[in-house]
Design a binder for these strands. Structure first.
Length: 269
DNA sequence: ATCCAGGAATTTT
DNA sequence: AAAATTCATGGA
């Protein structure tokens, strides 16, 4: 059984913090569908067992090569984030596939995690490729070119997001994403927001979760709540102010602060 | 039943 | 430029 020695990593916290919607726990194992493949993983203390993908893929997807000490050093100066990091130690920002991530967060708009998972599974089942893994069946997410049957898309329970996704799939070119990784954050975000169904928040999710832009700070209802309580005396504050405050405070690790605070705030409701 | 959900696009002020 | 309104639908 292939194994990786790890530190500062939690499989559960990373998979169950609202950044990724395509994993299922079956028995001891987490089955994960991403980047067009399926693999499984299980953690025992400082050991991560896996099967179905090679070592470099697993290390990359879980960001095991990241300089996590520097993340912690930067974020632990803040009381609230330090507490969240302590409580959810090892939560990492995963490296998703840019198009899969875009699709997922277009579907996430004004929805909830349970429903998002359902929508994505439905899309994968209707449009994706069937993948058999250990006798279980999974489905890959369809590439943009395959999402052209609007009748079938209507059966996926997307509501008004259906049109966004349909139009996004029509306009997106996969090669664009590579350029977006190299670009400055602001320019990449601006270009992403030209995609139908991608506004500020979804753009920040894509930048953070799949394009390596650590300064992205997605502001949703939960992080807005948490930030207002912690840093704005409980006062209603515009998303833009919250985002810029966070990026001044945490710089290139703002995205990590966001993910810890998001998960921490959501868990205490 | 009523309310909310990891918002975006459009219209109005 | 900022604030208000509209947009479908599943789940609690």
């Amino acid at each position: 059984m292939p194994k990786i020695n790890i530190r500062n990593f939690s499989l559960e916290h990373s998979l169950d913090s609202g950044q990724f919607f395509r994993c299922w726990k079956i028995g001891e194992w987490h089955y994960i569908a991403t980047h067009g493949i399926v693999f499984k993983a299980r953690q025992e203390g400082s050991k991560l067992f896996y099967e179905g993908a090679n070592t470099s893929f697993v290390r990359n997807f879980f960001a095991l090569d990241e300089d996590f000490d520097s993340v912690r050093e930067k974020l632990a100066k803040d009381k609230a984030v330090a507490e969240a990091m302590k409580q959810y130690n090892g939560l990492r920002i995963l490296r998703q596939h840019p198009w899969e991530c875009t699709l997922a967060f277009i579907c996430s708009s004004f929805s909830n995690i349970k429903r998002i998972k359902g929508c994505l599974y439905s899309i994968s089942k209707n449009f994706g490729r069937k993948i058999n893994f250990e006798g279980k069946h999974f489905y890959s997410m369809p590439l943009p070119g395959r999402l052209k049957d609007s009748g079938l898309l209507a059966k996926c329970g997307l509501g008004y997001r259906q049109k966004y996704l349909y139009d996004a799939a029509k306009t997106i070119r996969l090669k664009q994403f590579e350029a977006l990784k190299q670009m400055q954050y602001a320019e990449a975000k601006k270009q992403l927001m030209d995609v139908p169904g991608v506004g500020e928040k979804v753009a920040d999710c894509i930048l953070l979760f799949s394009l390596g832009h650590g300064e992205a700070f997605p502001v949703d209802v939960w992080i807005k709540r948490a930030m207002e309580e912690l840093y704005f005396r409980g006062r209603k504050t515009p998303e833009k102010k919250i985002r810029e405050f966070a990026q001044r405070k945490w710089g290139k690790h703002a995205g990590y602060a966001q993910q810890y605070l998001y998960h921490w705030r959501r868990m205490r409701d």
